[in-house]
Every structure is written in structure tokens, then in C-alpha cells.
Design a protein around this nucleic acid. Structure first.
Length: 588
RNA sequence: CGGGGUGUAGCUUAGCCUGGUAGAGCGCCUGGUUUGGGACCAGGAGGUCGUAGGUUCGAAUCCUAUCGCCCCGACCA
């Protein structure tokens, strides 16, 4: 048992002004963390306990599915990253570490980076250590601090520069094996989040910088989330908005026959979809083609969408570029022949079509059939543009952003969209990393193959905050039994009184013997302060010992999540408490 | 990086517009009274007003720059 006076739980009556969301406020007010700088937090004693409990649950679930724990360095030689498949994209989020005296030496400046994840470390390791199919599959994991130079740290631990993550890497001999490893991890994640008392939904996700063939994210629905989840209750379809599709695009290209010859018309000053939709032109947005110019690994390419649709930028990842961004007007004009606002993809109107890396069309433009687009001549547009006849399309894809209410691709029912926080992510990577690093093995037929990989992350510190975000009330945190810093709080209202202190210790010992972690509030504070703090720090079970109760021959028992205060007779108290603890632990 | 906001005691903040010796509440220290839901009385400590320039007889207040932090957008567990 721990006495409050012997540890350090600096609670705050007032909310620090730099916290905005509930969980961040409670982290600070309950004395769980303190800020060092933007996205940098000290875990205070109680916060550290929660972190350790969550880590332990994670460890147990990983081990259950065959995970093997190890610990890799935080400082990585930059060469590992230069060799890896995602250096151009990853370098921007990595902190660089130069050794003392860098730049003074005669040879090339050694350079290190702080690890944002560890594919570039584990893959070379496995390459040199594992060469036979007999040693596969393997799944290595660790729970460590990760470093990312976040563009914008925010919401306390939700998006930090330095955070705790569980990362795992699976290596299989076959694709089927990799799929099996992937499902084991999905299972482990589901079990882990359940044990943390966290309601999550798993959604299809974009693979992003990671690369890889498919992935799922574990999301906690919350209005402050960074992601939009698109879902359908009827079919169970759920996907990150970056990845989500809708059933809105059934049209066949053949249905849209040309309706006449192309015609150019003057549109002085019209540079937006909305302006062309307004009088005097009156071309509805969904009858326009929107032409966007992007730069992919240094070369321009076009994306064509319905005028009424928005681009979902993450979907451009399917095009195979390492890096992409919107093109600047200076880059656009020499290629297209016009400034943004008058652009189009009609073959023959593009000034320098050979400069383009491709023209990529969203399926939804089939719904337009014949529409209006820019003439690649400032102040002019073209009408009666036919998709099949006039547009110089390299390939088709899904690039549009899904909107709420569009039909579900599975059930046809209206899709819903909700904000959510990503707390876990599983990727099937394939051989992207093993190819790059030469992580190969020899099979039974003496043939050499690249290992098939997967990688799996859980934001441990983020999970901690997500639990608070999901489990609190106006008075403070309501910890689930499984991750509470302590599970039982014995409030001694009269710590100067020997009998009360004796009883408090006795009850604490009984709870502890039954398997609970116990905190005893022995501070010389007024009762009001102690009750307020008890609610704020949110331990699941509260026992109250005071002179008044002792005179009556009772102590009080109250669950943080409930309202009832039970008076229990002193004679039965130890037994009742032990029973309550066992029951709660059994539920956890 | 773009847009918006903000910086005054450990915390929450007033004062700034309209320049004139920096105020309060909480917390902290001392003494007393209290004692079952953030007590009361009396006394006390604590602030180069983010930093640097400038304007002015005089700057927390006006101007410029700079830094930190918070919020909105693009990236991530």
C-alpha cells in the first residue's frame, strides 16, 4: 500500500490555461503529467503507474500471440534510413542528432537520427540473424519511446514529439503466413484495447508513408480526433476517410456518348467551380471537370475530378510516387498554358503534354459524361467535353473524398462520418523492406525468398489519454480497474486519530491481500479536499474511514463510477472489501 | 509552414483601448478558530508584467522585432 503523503500527486483545483480538451485537462489536474515544452511531458508518479499497467497489458497480449520482446536503440545511424524505402518522406519527421564535434573531423560527418519507428533497424537485424525458413515466422516487439518532429504537437499526449509506442514486426516465409501473423496481431489488439476498458472500432486504413498492402486502424471515437471514420451500421463497413469509398460510382463510360462538338467560350475572370456554376454561365458543379496539378517526385501530373467533388489527397499514394504536393502556379503555366482556374485535360489543349507524368481520372467523372472544363487558355472554357472522346486519361482511380450520406459501397445505406483518435495500426507490409535490405531466407527447396513482413503499432501513451477521454465525468477521471494507478483509495478523514489510522491500514491490507493496488489518503486535509481529490484522480473503489463512521461502527464503500455510498459494518468490512476487489478484478 | 489568438506571482486572472509608483482569488508560510464534499479570521512571503529594441519627462499599457504557448488546416501511434 502507498500513502498519499509518501508519494507525489500534485492535483490542481484550476485548469491550466494551455489545456483545451477534457482528457488533457484531467491529465494535468489529476497530477499525472507535467509539461516540459510543446509535445514533451513528464510522467508524474501516478501517471507512470498507469503507463506501466497499460504496457503490461500490452505485453501480455503480445506474448499470448507469440510476440518476442526486445529493445532496440533510440539513436539510429542515418545510413539505415538512407537504405530504407521511405527515406524521402520519413526524413522530414525525424530529429537529427549530430555527435559532438560533428563537422570538425576530416571524414564524412557522422549523422544519427532519433527513431520514429524501427523497420530500418529490425529488418537488417533479422537479415543477418535469420536465414532459414526453419526460423520463421518470428514476431519481434518492443515498448519504447519514439521521437517524431510533429508538425503540430497538440492535445497533451495525443500528439506528442516524444511518446511511448509498442511496435512489432513480423517476418514470415509465405504470404499466407504473413496474413496469419496480421490476424494474430489484430486479435491481440482487440484483446488489449478491451482489457484497457477502451471502446475501439477497427477500420480499413491508408498505408501512408509506411507503404504495404493493407492495413487496419484501431480508432477511439471522439470529437477531438484527428481522423474521420466513415462507417455504415447496416453493413459493418468502416474505413478511414483517407481510404473510404462510396457506392456512388456505378456509371459505365459507354453510357456517356458525345452530345456534340467541343465549343470554346469566353469566361473572363472565372477561376472557380462556383463562379462557373453561377450566372450567367450556370454550369452546375457536377457537370464540370476539375483539373488539379500535382508534382510527383518532381514531375507534374494531373488529377481530374467532378467539379462537385473534393480530392482525397491520401489516395494519390496509389499512384506510386514517393512524394507529392500541389504544383505552384509557376510550375503549372508552362506545362498547361494557363493559370489555375482555366485548366483542363482535353487532349490537344495542354501546351506541353510530354512533361506530364500522367493524367489520372477519378471514376466519378463518368457520371459527368459530357461537361465543361478549362480550355488551358486564361479566360476560356470548353463545353461539350466528352470523357471518352476528349480527355487524355492515363489511368483511372478512386481519388475523391467521400461525403456523409453517400451510399455505402456494401449496403447502399447512407454512410456516416465520425471523428476518431487512432490508437493502433496494423500493416501488412509485404516485401517492401525485406527487398530493400535483402532480408531473405532459404526455403526447403534451397530457394531464396524475401521475408514477408508486417508491422504493428500501438500508441501506449496515447491510449492512456484516450482512456481518460472516454471515461470521465464533471468531477474527474473514472479509471477502469485494469489500468487505474491504484484500484482502491482508502480515505482516512482523521489521520491524526490512532483508531482511524489503524482501521485505514487494516482495510487497505485487506484490499491488497485480495489483489488490489491501494492508495491511502493520510494527508492532513479537510474532508472536502480529500473527496474532491478522490473524485478527480478517479480510483475505482473508495473506502472512507472517519471518526464519525467509527462511532457508528461502519466504514463507507463507494464505486467511483456509481452514486451509492454503502455503509458496511466494521466486523464484516475486511471480508466485504476483499470480495468487492475480487469481483472487480474478475471483471477486468 | 499558412491563418487566428495569447504571454502579468506556482495556478486562474484584472489592469492595456484612453501611458503616471502592479491588483485580486486560489495555492504557499505563521498564529488562532474550525473539522464528513475544495473552511474562517489575522498576519506574511512571492512579479526585471516572455525577451530585445524604439517612442516618451515617464511604458504592463503605444510601435517594431523576436521567442514560447494555445487553437484551426496539411502528417502520424
Amino acid at each position: 500500500m502507498k500513502f498519499w503523503s509518501q508519494t507525489f500527486i500534485p492535483t490542481l483545483k484550476e485548469t491550466p490555461s494551455d489545456a483545451e480538451i477534457t482528457s488533457h485537462k484531467l491529465l494535468l489536474r489529476a497530477g499525472l503529467v507535467r509539461k516540459l515544452g510543446g509535445g514533451l511531458y513528464t510522467f508524474m508518479p501516478a501517471g507512470l503507474r498507469v503507463l506501466q499497467k497499460i504496457s503490461q497489458l500490452c505485453r501480455e497480449e503480445m506474448d499470448r500471440e507469440g510476440g518476442i520482446e526486445l529493445a532496440m536503440p533510440h539513436v539510429h545511424p542515418v545510413e539505415n534510413w538512407e537504405q530504407g524505402p521511405r527515406w524521402p518522406a520519413a526524413r522530414e519527421i525525424m530529429y537529427r542528432v549530430d555527435h559532438a564535434g560533428a563537422g570538425k573531423g576530416r571524414s564524412k560527418e557522422p549523422e544519427f537520427v532519433l527513431g520514429p519507428t524501427h523497420e530500418e533497424v529490425i529488418t537488417p537485424l533479422v537479415k543477418s540473424e535469420i536465414t532459414s525458413y526453419r526460423d520463421l515466422p518470428k514476431n519481434f516487439y518492443q515498448i519504447t519511446t519514439k521521437f517524431r518532429n510533429e508538425i503540430r504537437p497538440r492535445y497533451g499526449l495525443m500528439r506528442a514529439r516524444e511518446f511511448i509506442m509498442k511496435d512489432a514486426y513480423s517476418f514470415d516465409a509465405t504470404d499466407e503466413g504473413a496474413v496469419e501473423s496480421y490476424h494474430k496481431m489484430k486479435r491481440a489488439y482487440t484483446a488489449f484495447f478491451n482489457r484497457c476498458g477502451l471502446k475501439t472500432i477497427s477500420v480499413e486504413a491508408d498505408t501512408g508513408v509506411m507503404g504495404g498492402s493493407f492495413s487496419h486502424e484501431f480508432m477511439v471515437p471522439a470529437p477531438i480526433g484527428d481522423d474521420d471514420v466513415v462507417y455504415c451500421d447496416a453493413s459493418g463497413y468502416a474505413a478511414n476517410r483517407e481510404k473510404a469509398t462510396s457506392g456512388i460510382v456505378p456509371a459505365d463510360l459507354a453510357d456517356a456518348a458525345p452530345v456534340g462538338a467541343l465549343e470554346e467560350f469566353a469566361t473572363p475572370g472565372v477561376v472557380t467551380i462556383a463562379a462557373l456554376a453561377a450566372a450567367p454561365y450556370g454550369v452546375p458543379a457536377d457537370q464540370q471537370f476539375k483539373t488539379l496539378v500535382y508534382m510527383g517526385d518532381g514531375k507534374p501530373f494531373l488529377v481530374i475530378l467532378r467539379g462537385s467533388d473534393d480530392l482525397e489527397e491520401a489516395k494519390l499514394g496509389a499512384l506510386g510516387f514517393q512524394l507529392w504536393r500541389t504544383a505552384t502556379p509557376e510550375e503549372i503555366e508552362p506545362v498547361m498554358g494557363a493559370k489555375p482556374g482555366s485548366l483542363g485535360a482535353v487532349a490537344g489543349t495542354i501546351r506541353n503534354p510530354t512533361a506530364l507524368a500522367g493524367v489520372f481520372a477519378d471514376h466519378a467523372i463518368k457520371l459527368v459524361g459530357n461537361g465543361t472544363t478549362g480550355a488551358n487558355k486564361d479566360g476560356f472554357h470548353l463545353r461539350r467535353v466528352n470523357v471518352a472522346r476528349d480527355l487524355a486519361i492515363t489511368s483511372w482511380g478512386d481519388f475523391r473524398r467521400v461525403r456523409e450520406g453517400e451510399p455505402c459501397p456494401k449496403s447502399g445505406q447512407p454512410l456516416k462520418i465520425a471523428r476518431a483518435i487512432e490508437v493502433g495500426h496494423v500493416f501488412k507490409l509485404g516485401t517492401k523492406y525485406s527487398d530493400k535490405f535483402g532480408a531473405v531466407f532459404t526455403d526447403a527447396n534451397k530457394q531464396s525468398h524475401p521475408m514477408v513482413m508486417g508491422c504493428y503499432g500501438i500508441g501506449i501513451s496515447r491510449t492512456l489519454q484516450a482512456v481518460i477521454e472516454q471515461s470521465n465525468d464533471a468531477d474527474g477521471i473514472i479509471w477502469p480497474w485494469s489500468v487505474a494507478p491504484w484500484q482502491v483509495l482508502v480515505v482516512n478523514l482523521d489521520p491524526q486519530d490512532a483508531a482511524a489510522s489503524e482501521m485505514a491500514k487494516k482495510l487497505a491490507a485487506a484490499a491488497e491481500a485480495a489483489g488490489a493496488d491501494v492508495l491511502v489518503d493520510d494527508r492532513a486535509e479537510r474532508p472536502g479536499v480529500k473527496f474532491k481529490d478522490a473524485d478527480l484522480i478517479g480510483l475505482p473503489l473508495r473506502l472512507t474511514v472517519g471518526g464519525r463512521g467509527l462511532k457508528e461502527g461502519i466504514v463507507e464503500m463507494k464505486w467511483r463510477a456509481g452514486k451509492d455510498v454503502k455503509k458496511i459494518p466494521l466486523a464484516d468490512a475486511e471480508q466485504i472489501i476483499a470480495q468487492a476487489v475480487r469481483t472487480a478484478a474478475g471483471l477486468a
